[in-house]
Design a protein around this nucleic acid. Structure first.
Length: 844
RNA sequence: GCCCCUCUGGCGGAACUGGUAGACGCGCGGGAUUCAAAAUCCCGUUCUCGCAAGAGAGUGCCAGUUCGAUUCUGGCGGGGGGCACCA
C-alpha cells in the first residue's frame, strides 16, 4: 500500500502545464467565450486562507467551463497601490515599489503552488506605469465629458492616515483601515459624478440576475432613491429663498419651523453678525461623526432670526433654525419641520415650544378632536386642516400639493439619492498621480496628452509626515502647458478603487499605447463569472459598474455592466484561543502549552486574534489538492467555512483512498475505448447506471455552484466503485469506465492527482484539455421505482412498482403491503392518493 | 429605528417545482489487522423506550392551509447582516 506523493506529483504537473502554456488563451470567435475572474489580491506578502478559497472556487469554474468547450479567459494580477506599502516604507525603511515587487514575487510563487489555471502571460500590477498611465488618460477624458469636477468640500479626514476617506470608507465614524475617529475638514477635492448614473445604476440592478439578491439589495439601499419635492420658501424682508427637499409635500400645512444645516450658506451669512450663531456653528462642526456621538448628541437648534413665508399662504410666517441634525450633504441641506407627523420634528418642536398642527388623521377620526401628544402620527390617513388638500389620502395630497407648487412656481417633484459623488483625491504617495497642473495665471490645467504619463518619482522621503509628493524638492514644479510660467503639479493621487475599476478590461489585452484593444474587450467582456468577498458589495462593485458606464460614454467600451455573474464567497473561520491573561494564542501555541487555554467560538480568521492557519504550511504538508478539496467539501461557497484539522485530514484520506483504488485494483482493466460489453452482470449494470447518474448530477451541481453537493456525489461513486465485486461479469470494464469518469469529474477540483491518474490509466493526453464526460441518458432510465406508502401521511413502508404504474394497480400493490393491510383491516378507506413513482397515501 | 437573511443529529451540511427527513463528510462507539502503535479496513451512530423484532417522537416555538409541510401562510422567539440625525 503506497501513499500518494502529493509534493512531487503537483510540482510535475505544474511544470508541464506551464511549459505547454496549457492555459494561455487567444481570441477565437469560433468558440463560445467564458471569462472567469477572481478579485485580484492586494500584495500583502503572503496568501491567506481567504485567497485559497477564492482562487479554488475560480479555478474550479474555469477548468469546468474549459472542459465544457468554452474558450476560457482566467487571468490574475495585483492590486498594487495602497497604504500598507507606505506604512512598510516608514516602518522598515524600504521603498514601496521594492516592497510591493518582493511581495508580488512571493505571492506569485504561492499561487503557482496551488496549481491554478491562470494565463500568466496576462499578469499585471496596477503600480506599474504601463498600467496606471492609461487611467490618467481616462481621467482627462472623463473631465472633458463632464464626469469629473473639483470642489471645496467637507471631507472625512483620517488623522492617522492623513488622508481623505470616501463615505464608504468610514465605518461607524472610524476610518476603515486605521480605526481612528474621522474628523471633518474642508478641502479642495476631485470628484467623479457617480450620481449622474444613479438612476441607471439602480434600474440595471434588476437585470443582474446572476448576482446574489443580498448584494443587489445592498446596492439599492446604498443608492437610496427617494421621491419627493423641492419647495421654495421665500424669506421675509429678503430677496432670496430657502430650497428644501421633502418626501412629504402633503404635510406642508403642518409646517411650523424650517431647519437648515449648520454649514448652509445662509447660516454662515447670518453668523457674521450673530456671535451666538457663530458659536453654534463651530460647535456643530466640532461634533464627531461617530455612531456614539450621533446617538448621544441632543437635537439642538438656534433661531437665526429670519422668517420664511408659507408657499401656499404668505401670511403664515415660519421661524428658521440652524440645526445640528440637518445634513448639508443630503437633499438641499434644508428642511421644513412638520412636528405632527415626524417624531424627530415633534421632539424639536416640544423643546422650542413650536406649534404642532395635525394635518393627517386616521380614517374615521374626528378632525376637531384629533391631537398629537407624545407620538407623531406617521401612518396613512386623511388630510385635515389643509385647505384644498382636506379629505384627500396622503398620496392624493402629495400630487395635488406638487401640482399647485408647480403652478405657482414654488416647487416641483424631484428624485433624490442617498448616493454621493465619488471623491477620488488621496493625499498619499503610493498611488496614481492625478494629471493636473495648477497655474496662477491659467488656473486648473489638464496635463496635455503628449506630456502623459505623469510618472511617480522614485526618490522620495518618508521621514516627514504627510504626502511625500508634497515635499519632494522638484517633482511638483513644472511649466504651465498653456502659458509656460512656473506652475505646480497636483500632488494628490487617485483612490485605489480607481485602479480596480477597470483592471478586468486590461486583462483582455494590454497594449502599450492604449488601455486595451476594443476588439479584445468586445470579445471577452463582460466578465461571465466574478468571484470574491461580500465586503466589496457596495464599494468596488458599485464603482466598477459606474466606471464601465463612464468608459462606454467616452467611447472606450461597448458594455455598461462589467460583471454578468457574481459569486460572493463566505469567510474562513477558526476557533480562537486565549491564555489565562486573555492574550491571543496561535493554534499551534494553544496545542503545545501546559497552561490553561480558553477556547472561543469560531470567528473569521484574523491576524489580530491569531486564529489563522498558513496555507503554505498546509500545501507543503498535504498538497494543494487536499487544501482545495477541503475548501469545496463542507459548506456551500457563499457560506462561512469552519477550518478544522480533522476536515483537512478527511480530505487527505480521500485523496489517498482514490489513489489506491485506481492504482491498486486486483483485476487488469481493458484497453482504453473498449466498447460496452453485452454480458454485464446486474450489479455491474447498476454501477454503470450510477456512473452516468453521477455525471448528470455533478454537472448540474457545478452549473449551480453547489460544489459541496458535487463532492458528495463523487464520494458516493467512489464508495460504490471501491466495494465493487471484481469477480462480476463486466466488472473490469465498469471499473475502467468508473475510474475514468471519476478522474474527469475531479479534474477541476483536484487537478494534479487527476492528471496523474489520467496518465496512470494509460492516456497520453492532458486531462485539462479533455472534454467533460457525456451523460448517456439511456443508462439513466430505470424500469422500476421504489415508492413510499403512507397511512394518513405517515410513512409505513416501500413497494417496488414498474415505472409509471398508477391507478388501481398501484393502489392494489400498496394495500397488499402487510403493514398496510393490517392497519387498515377493520377501517373504511376514505381515499387513496397515488403520485406515480413517488408516493401512495392511504387515507382512513 | 428601517430593510434583509437565517434557524434541520454531537458538528458542517443534504432533501428536485409540497411527496421515504438526515445524502456526503467530520466526530464518536465497537470490531478486524498488529508484539504494540500509526495507517488501513469492517460494523454502528436523530432522539426516547426495548436484548431484539419493533413502537413512539422529531426540521426554533405556536397556529393555519393540505391526503401529506423542513418546504406554503400568519404570529412569536433566537442568531447574523446591511443602512441610519436621510428630511
Amino acid at each position: 500500500m503506497s501513499n500518494y506523493n502529493a509534493r512531487a506529483t503537483e510540482a510535475k504537473w505544474q511544470a508541464i502545464w506551464d511549459k505547454m502554456g496549457t492555459f494561455d488563451v487567444t481570441i477565437d470567435p469560433s468558440k463560445p467565450k467564458y471569462y472567469v475572474l477572481e478579485m485580484f489580491p492586494y500584495p500583502s506578502g503572503r496568501i491567506h486562507m481567504g485567497h485559497v478559497r477564492n482562487y479554488t472556487l475560480g479555478d474550479l469554474v474555469a477548468r469546468y467551463k474549459r472542459a465544457r468547450g468554452f474558450n476560457v479567459l482566467h487571468p490574475m494580477g495585483w492590486d498594487a497601490f495602497g497604504l500598507p506599502a507606505e506604512n512598510a516604507a516608514i516602518a522598515n525603511n524600504i521603498h514601496p515599489a521594492k516592497w510591493t515587487q518582493e511581495n508580488i514575487a512571493n505571492m506569485r510563487d504561492q499561487l503557482k503552488s496551488m496549481g491554478l489555471s491562470y494565463d500568466w502571460t496576462r499578469e499585471l500590477a496596477t503600480c506599474e506605469p504601463n498600467y496606471y498611465q492609461h487611467e490618467q488618460k481616462m481621467f482627462l477624458d472623463f473631465l472633458e465629458a463632464g464626469l469629473i469636477y473639483r470642489k471645496e468640500s467637507w471631507v472625512n479626514w483620517d488623522p492617522v492616515e492623513k488622508t481623505v476617506l470616501a463615505n464608504e470608507q468610514v465605518i461607524d465614524g472610524k476610518g476603515w483601515r486605521s480605526g481612528a475617529n474621522v474628523e471633518k475638514r474642508n478641502l479642495s477635492q476631485w470628484f467623479l459624478k457617480i450620481t449622474e448614473y444613479a438612476d441607471d445604476l439602480l434600474e440595471s440592478i434588476k437585470d443582474l440576475n446572476r448576482w446574489p439578491d443580498r448584494v443587489r439589495l445592498m446596492q439599492e439601499n446604498w443608492i437610496g432613491r427617494s421621491e419627493g419635492a423641492h419647495i421654495q420658501f421665500e424669506l421675509c424682508g429678503r430677496d432670496d429663498q430657502i430650497d428644501v427637499f421633502t418626501t412629504r409635500p402633503d404635510t406642508l400645512f403642518g409646517a411650523s419651523f424650517m431647519a437648515i444645516a449648520a454649514n448652509h450658506p445662509l447660516a454662515s451669512e447670518m453668523s457674521k453678525k450673530n456671535a451666538q450663531l457663530s458659536n453654534f456653528i463651530t460647535d456643530c462642526n466640532r461634533m464627531g461623526t461617530s455612531e456614539a456621538d450621533i446617538e448621544t448628541a441632543e437635537k439642538v437648534g438656534l433661531d437665526i432670526g429670519i422668517k420664511a413665508k408659507h408657499p401656499f399662504n404668505p401670511s403664515i410666517e415660519i421661524p428658521v433654525f440652524a440645526a445640528n441634525f440637518v445634513l448639508m450633504e443630503y437633499g438641499t441641506g434644508a428642511i421644513f419641520g412638520c412636528p405632527a407627523h415626524d417624531q424627530r420634528d415633534l421632539d424639536f418642536a416640544r423643546k422650542y415650544n413650536l406649534d404642532v398642527i395635525p394635518v393627517v388623521a386616521p380614517k374615521g377620526a374626528n378632525p376637531k378632536t384629533f391631537h398629537i401628544k407624545k407620538e407623531a402620527f406617521v401612518e396613512d390617513g386623511i388630510l385635515i386642516n389643509s385647505d384644498f388638500l382636506d379629505g384627500m389620502s396622503i398620496s392624493e395630497a402629495k400630487s395635488a400639493s406638487i401640482k399647485k407648487l408647480a403652478k405657482i412656481g414654488k416647487g416641483k417633484s424631484v428624485v433624490n439619492f442617498r448616493l454621493r459623488d465619488w471623491g477620488i483625491s488621496r493625499q498619499r504617495y503610493w498611488g496614481c498621480p492625478i494629471p493636473i497642473i495648477y497655474c496662477d495665471t491659467c488656473g486648473t490645467v489638464p496635463v496635455p496628452n503628449e506630456q502623459l504619463p505623469v510618472i511617480l518619482p522614485e526618490d522620495v522621503d518618508f521621514e516627514k509626515p504627510g504626502n511625500p509628493l508634497e515635499h519632494h524638492p522638484t517633482w511638483k514644479i513644472v511649466d504651465c502647458p498653456k502659458c509656460s510660467k512656473k506652475a505646480k503639479r497636483e500632488t494628490d493621487t487617485f483612490d485605489t478603487f480607481f485602479e480596480s475599476s477597470w483592471y478586468f478590461a486590461r486583462f483582455c489585452s494590454a497594449p502599450n499605447d492604449q488601455a486595451f484593444e476594443r476588439d479584445a474587450t468586445d470579445y471577452w467582456l463582460p466578465v461571465d463569472q466574478y468571484i470574491g468577498g461580500i465586503e466589496h458589495a457596495v464599494l468596488h462593485l458599485l464603482y466598477s459598474r459606474f466606471f464601465t458606464r463612464a468608459l462606454k460614454q467616452c467611447g472606450y467600451l461597448s458594455h455598461k455592466e462589467p460583471f454578468k455573474g457574481l459569486l460572493t464567497q463566505g469567510m474562513i473561520c477558526h476557533e480562537t484561543y486565549q491564555d489565562s491573561d486573555g492574550k491571543w494564542l496561535f493554534p499551534e501555541e494553544a496545542e503545545n502549552t501546559n497552561s490553561p487555554v480558553t477556547i472561543g467560538r469560531s470567528v473569521k480568521m484574523s491576524k489580530s486574534k491569531k486564529n489563522v492557519v498558513d496555507p503554505e504550511e498546509i500545501i507543503s504538508n498535504y498538497g494543494a489538492d487536499t487544501a482545495r478539496l477541503f475548501m469545496l467539501s463542507d459548506s456551500p461557497p457563499d457560506r462561512d467555512l469552519d477550518w478544522t484539522d480533522s476536515g483537512i485530514d478527511g480530505a487527505w484520506r480521500y485523496i489517498n483512498r482514490l489513489w489506491r483504488m485506481v492504482t491498486e485494483h486486483k483485476i487488469p482493466l481493458p484497453e482504453i475505448n473498449t466498447p460496452l460489453p453485452e454480458n454485464l452482470s446486474i450489479t455491474a449494470g447498476e454501477i454503470h447506471r450510477k456512473i452516468h447518474k453521477t455525471i448528470a448530477s455533478v454537472s448540474d451541481d457545478l452549473d449551480k455552484f453547489h460544489f459541496n453537493k458535487a463532492i458528495a456525489r463523487i464520494r458516493e461513486l467512489t464508495n460504490i466503485l471501491e466495494s465493487c465485486d471484481q469477480s462480476e461479469a463486466g466488472a473490469s470494464w465498469v471499473l475502467r469506465h468508473g475510474f475514468e469518469t471519476l478522474v474527469c469529474l475531479i479534474g477541476p477540483m483536484m487537478p494534479h492527482i487527476a492528471e496523474e491518474l489520467w496518465q496512470h490509466l494509460g492516456h497520453d493526453t492532458i486531462l485539462a484539455n479533455t472534454p467533460w464526460p457525456d451523460v448517456n441518458t439511456d443508462f439513466l432510465f430505470e424500469n422500476n421505482s421504489t415508492i413510499a406508502v403512507q397511512i394518513n401521511g405517515k410513512f409505513k413502508g416501500t413497494i417496488t412498482l414498474p415505472r409509471g404504474c398508477k391507478g388501481k394497480e398501484a393502489e392494489k400493490a400498496a394495500m397488499a403491503l402487510p403493514k398496510i393491510a393490517e392497519t387498515v383491516k377493520n377501517k373504511a378507506v376514505k381515499k387513496i392518493i397515488v403520485v406515480p413513482d413517488r408516493i401512495i397515501n392511504v387515507v382512513i
